[in-house]
Design a protein around this nucleic acid. Structure first.
Lengths: 335, 335
DNA sequence: CTGAAAGCGCTAACAA
DNA sequence: TTGTTAGCGCTTTCAG
């Protein structure tokens, strides 16, 4: 075998080629001041000639930063999540950061282990849509040097930068809207009641019912998988005698829609329905779905923005960004 | 200032705490053989006590591997893509790898620069859904040590591991199905004709038309943004006098559906329609959409599988995995 | 079975 | 303005 040359050129190679010291090459790489134009040029050309690519691992090791952020989401298949990731990714890219994506599947233990992985990869920041809002289940494993933004959900009693939407208000509005159509037994269908979003939406729903002088009727399941046609028939129709439905998130909406069809009913025609969470083609259903629309991509961007402000400036109080949602009234509510 | 102790314990700290050498601690960390039970225990306990977390950056720097793979997709908002990422992510996690996600927005230059970023992060492998299938626009910047799997798309004249679906066959089947309903002026609506998937689907469509002794009628746009109601009216209806529509991907489907509505038509009722690509609630539209269903998550898993087999075993010929799609006949085709 | 010592590729004191 | 010299935290020859 011929003399083995590790194929990727290093900064040392560049320095040699340019006939300058390693440090000078490093300075050029980092656009430092205090380098003569002459040498800058020489180094640049050497890099070009050699096809030099800096090794981010080495850079990060030395500089104690990775130029990467981690994002942990419960479920990438949810269009809300996918769009949020998209937004975050764009902002990260614009800031020269890479995004390491992990998903928890809504499981706290998985979430925790993913966080450990990300931390050991030295991410500079973390954006997390927590799998459980009841208690802090992870900040103990995150070093103080890693900034955290929670996203979509909130965690009780934990001080962190957060991005959420106006869950409560819009849930109340949706409920009141349904009530204004004369619906009286409006049933809220939700899952994972321990989540902040679910709790807030329930609170908004209750407030709306109260405003309409109606008793609240909730059908909550621990896990979406319980949300079957049979369950709908028994809980929602037989027990609660629903004359309208308010689904509390995208998964619940899709499952309810399907369940209703199995029961021979059409959402919006046989029973008014409002959905929390918009999605592509919700407007093309018949009747078109009335929804609370969350600007998912903006949420992702905001989360990234909060994080990068910390990463640059660092200081200051924790911030809670609340992004407004909008009520999109189409037809399934009875309009 | 007091003596600064960098807060995260290192392997050196662990070794000290356990009163063994650095190398022994390293051996324990990597589960190497040849360490006495006694010391293994001591080291483990020391790690526990100190809350030690290995630094993956340092590990990767030394070992020339990052235990991370990169994935580049055109558009995360597309449910097909989101599901594929999801599948890939799971497999990566199971293999102890992290996924760095990047999106190209379908732009070759962005794609190239994202690849450079990922390469400089020393990813061990790359899964790419190429933004342009006409020519190789990136393999020159990928070191031989980084394995690449292309995904969804193929690139002309480039030898790589690939995962695709049976585009041609299913497009032909869908076309023939439409023809079997008596449709004669079946118009294929597609975008980005330079993409492998588009070309293959067109080829399948043409074959289907030929089999039905019908002349092909294609309406292709360079970019999805051209796909407006006006365009539909002019190209599809006035010029081609469509009596059936075959949309060639998800974006085209949603835009066509919306455009049709703007024109006062309902897909599947006023004009039969078949869609390449299924999505959530396609079955809940009225009439329910007939589609070619791509197993997106499986595609993602397969891509990961191919990549990890390379990463472990390394050898062998390039492999082309073709995942079968299924025709899901609902009602929009006229059934 | 164990350890000392030499780096991986890069950055940053500290001089010159 | 430039270069020398230590490391970052880890793995890994190569001796003991």
């Amino acid at each position: 075998m011929a003399l083995v040359r590790s194929d990727a050129p290093t900064l040392v190679d560049v320095a040699q080629e340019a006939e300058v010291s390693l440090k000078t090459a490093s300075r050029v790489l980092n656009n430092s001041k205090n380098v003569s134009q002459d040498k800058v040029l020489r180094v640049r050309q050497a890099m070009e000639r050699l096809g030099y690519r800096p090794n981010e691992l080495a850079r990060g090791l030395k500089a104690q930063r990775s130029a990467a952020i981690g994002m942990i989401v419960p479920n990438l298949s949810d269009p809300f999540t996918a769009n949020a990731v998209h937004g975050l990714q764009e902002v990260a890219r614009a800031n020269g950061y890479a995004v390491i994506l992990a998903s928890s599947g809504g499981d706290v233990d998985v979430e925790r282990s993913e966080i450990e992985t990300l931390v050991s990869r030295q991410v500079d920041g973390l954006v997390i849509a927590p799998a459980d809002s009841r208690k802090d289940s992870f900040t103990d494993i995150i070093p103080a040097s890693v900034h955290v933004v929670t996203f979509d959900q909130l965690i009780r009693n934990v001080e962190l930068d957060t991005v959420t939407v106006t869950n409560r208000r819009s849930a109340q509005q949706a409920t009141e809207h349904l009530a204004s159509h004369g619906c009286r037994r409006i049933v809220a269908i939700g899952a994972r009641p321990y989540l902040y979003t679910c709790k807030e939406r329930i609170a908004g729903y209750k407030a709306g019912m109260k405003a309409a002088a109606l008793p609240p009727r909730m059908c909550l399941v621990d896990h979406e998988s319980s949300l079957t046609a049979d369950w709908l028939k028994k809980e929602v129709f037989q027990n609660q005698k629903a004359d309208a439905i308010f689904t509390l998130n995208w998964v619940c909406t899709t499952l309810t829609l399907r369940g209703l069809r199995t029961l021979g009913k059409t959402a919006g025609r046989d029973i008014p329905l409002f959905s929390f969470d918009d999605f592509d083609l919700a407007d093309m259903l018949t009747p078109a779905l009335s929804v609370v629309q969350q600007p998912a991509e903006i949420l992702g961007r905001e989360a990234a923005r909060l994080l990068f402000e910390r990463l640059k400036g660092s200081g200051g109080k924790f911030r809670a960004v609340v992004v407004p949602t909008s009520l999109v009234i189409r037809h399934s509510c009875g309009c």
